[in-house]
Amino acid sequence: MSTAAPAATPAAGAVLADLLPASSAARARLRDLALVAGGAALTGLAAQVSVPVPGSPVPVTGQTFAALLVGTALGARRGAASLGLYAAAGVAGLPWFAGGSAGWSTASFGYILGMIAAAAVVGALARRGGDRTVLRTAGVMVLGSAVVYAVGVPYLAHSAHLSAAQAVRLGLRPYLLGDALKAALAMSLLPAAWRLLPRG
């Protein structure tokens, strides 16, 4: 009596981007460059979804979600490189920060720096299977958001001359509900991608 072959199991230490085939080292480098550039572009596009928060210089945007998604899907090295490219291009004048802005002299620039660190953190966790189940993905997203705030809120306090309490009130509290919704979306997308994508 024959039995069905078991489904392939993803290799330990793999992230979603590793499932994209590359037949040689040169093709793998080209793939990685394309992924890094694509992740930066995705973050720039998501940043244009921007809603002002009354009384705060930091709008609600889609860029944090995109940054965490990029870091998780690409892994720590490529994810941090992608967000680093996003930040560097924006500082150089490409208007793809929130609301079509550019440069580093805004009070919200600390959040962009935090996204680079967060992409590295969530990417490292993804290599340990952090994006393969709903609960693990939730934890990864919460931790990644915490890293963004750990850099962004103190930067906001310094650049806008706010007290720590004011910076938390203006730069953290208004965004917690949105972060919960983004985490819920990631919880549905990332584990589902592992189930649907070809595995080698």
Rank of each mutant, 00 (worst) to 15 (best):
V140S: 09
A81E: 06
P198C: 03
H158T: 10
S108H: 04
H158V: 03
R127I: 00
A73K: 00
T61H: 12
A150Y: 02
P59W: 09
S24I: 04
R132K: 06
A164H: 14
V153A: 12
L20E: 07
L162N: 09
L177M: 13
F109C: 11
Y86G: 04
L196S: 14
A138H: 13
G84F: 01
A157K: 01
Y86L: 04
A186Q: 05
S2A: 13
L135V: 15
A14M: 03
A34V: 07
Y86M: 01
H158K: 15
W104G: 12
A41D: 03
A107R: 02
R173P: 04
A66K: 08
A7V: 09
G39P: 05
V36T: 11
F109K: 02
L177P: 12
T137F: 02
R199P: 02
P52Y: 12
L135F: 10
V60G: 10
L156A: 14
G62K: 00
V51G: 13
F97W: 12
G44D: 09
G100D: 06
Y155C: 08
T9F: 08
G100H: 13
G39M: 01
V51E: 05
L125H: 12
G178A: 11
A92W: 07
L74I: 05
S159C: 02
A40Y: 03
G130Q: 04
A183Y: 05
A7D: 05
V142M: 00
A118H: 06
V122I: 06
A22N: 05
V51T: 13
A186G: 10
V121I: 12
V153D: 07
S108M: 05
Q166A: 15
G84H: 07
A98H: 14
V168E: 02
M115S: 14
G79N: 06
R27S: 14
S101L: 04
P154W: 01
G139S: 09
P6E: 14
M187G: 13
G129I: 04
V142C: 07
L135D: 13
R195K: 13
P10Y: 10
G75Q: 09
L185H: 08
R31G: 03
L113H: 11
A88E: 08
V142S: 10
M1T: 11
L197M: 11
L135N: 14
D179R: 00
Y86N: 02
M1K: 10
G99L: 04
V151L: 05
L20M: 06
S23V: 15
G144M: 03
V58H: 13
F109I: 12
V91A: 15
A66V: 04
A184I: 00
D32V: 01
A160S: 15
I116W: 10
R77V: 01
R136M: 09
G99V: 07
D131Y: 10
D179Q: 12
L172F: 14
R127F: 00
A46Y: 03
L181T: 15
V121M: 08
M115Q: 11
A4V: 14
A107C: 09
G200W: 04
A14R: 06
S145R: 00
S82F: 02
A183F: 07
A150W: 01
T3M: 05
V168N: 12
G90P: 00
